[in-house]
Write a protein that binds this DNA or RNA. Structure first.
Lengths: 150, 150
DNA sequence: TTTACTGTTGCAAATAATCGCAATAAGGAA
DNA sequence: TTCCTTATTGCGATTATTTGCAACAGTAAA
């Protein structure tokens, strides 16, 4: 977890300009405990000042994500959530039938992580991915292909 | 890969009604070779008939995905692509800096797959996931002052 | 300081995707 | 076949997100 000063300083070092809007967004954002939608984050900001445009919030969160200071969660229905980086694996198993989300963790992601670095020199954000599939309940209801229903 | 008749029959068996719109969408869709946007699929349909509404295409592709007949790829910018299931692992490593997409495969997904089934009884669609991260080139640029790619 | 460069913002318009609802029509039963 | 139930469609409205652009303002250099 980063302190908001730390984020701001790093952004500056990387050549981004530090505007009052960005400082405030970073400050609010770094206090977030769970994943929040852009709208929710925008609402929190509105309570402090109305001088920040919604588009700026979108752009700043995108920036924080690109620069590695935000986790980003895309749900299947297009909704996007952001949160500060959380230590430890945090996998979302999203059922494409019932939209249930299971918070999972798995040892094997470590091997996967290593393999991506090995083969492709790619540093994957494997600690907060969403993976689609079918959950236990929905799988039982699903007849096999070409099999008769009832 | 499924023949479109096979998809239609299975949908029917599962209690979905087979409309001319669905039949045509399934037929066009099953011929797709690579991932396409909804708009692209809609355009293909328009060349045959203008009697299918865009919303119907969205709903049908969503249905095909839910029922396991379509792969679905969510890119970071919100764009969604669909394709018929392709055999073999097909992982997209998406760089959140430069948006480059690396087509990858990894032995370790098998272990991950097994672990999800084991622990959560969750059948993950691990053969066509998108994973965000930072690619080799962008990772090297990171410590330096960075050029904006926005 | 002051200036100059250019990244960032706000706003409004554009785009993408979803949703509510009335009309339609698929599929089973009679 | 004809009727009935209700899933599905089309359409327009709505929501969510992105984008273009002119004005503004951070930052470094003079």
């Amino acid at each position: 977890m980063y302190h908001h000063k730390q984020i701001v300083n790093t952004l500056k070092e990387r050549g981004y300009r530090i505007t009052p809007q960005r400082e405030l967004i970073v400050q609010i954002f770094s206090q977030i405990e769970k994943h929040q939608s852009v709208e929710e984050i925008y609402d929190s900001l509105q309570k402090i000042t109305t001088a920040i445009n919604l588009a700026t919030v979108y752009r700043t969160l995108e920036l924080l994500w690109r620069e590695g200071f935000a986790q980003r969660n895309d749900l299947s229905d297009g909704r996007v959530f952001f949160a500060p980086p959380i230590h430890g694996t945090h996998i979302h198993l999203v059922c494409r039938k019932c939209n249930q989300v299971i918070d999972a963790d798995a040892e094997s992601v470590l091997a996967l992580d290593a393999e991506f670095v090995d083969k492709y020199n790619f540093k994957a954000d494997l600690d907060h991915i969403s993976i689609f599939g079918v959950c236990e309940g929905c799988d039982q209801n699903e007849p096999d292909l070409k099999e008769d229903v009832e």
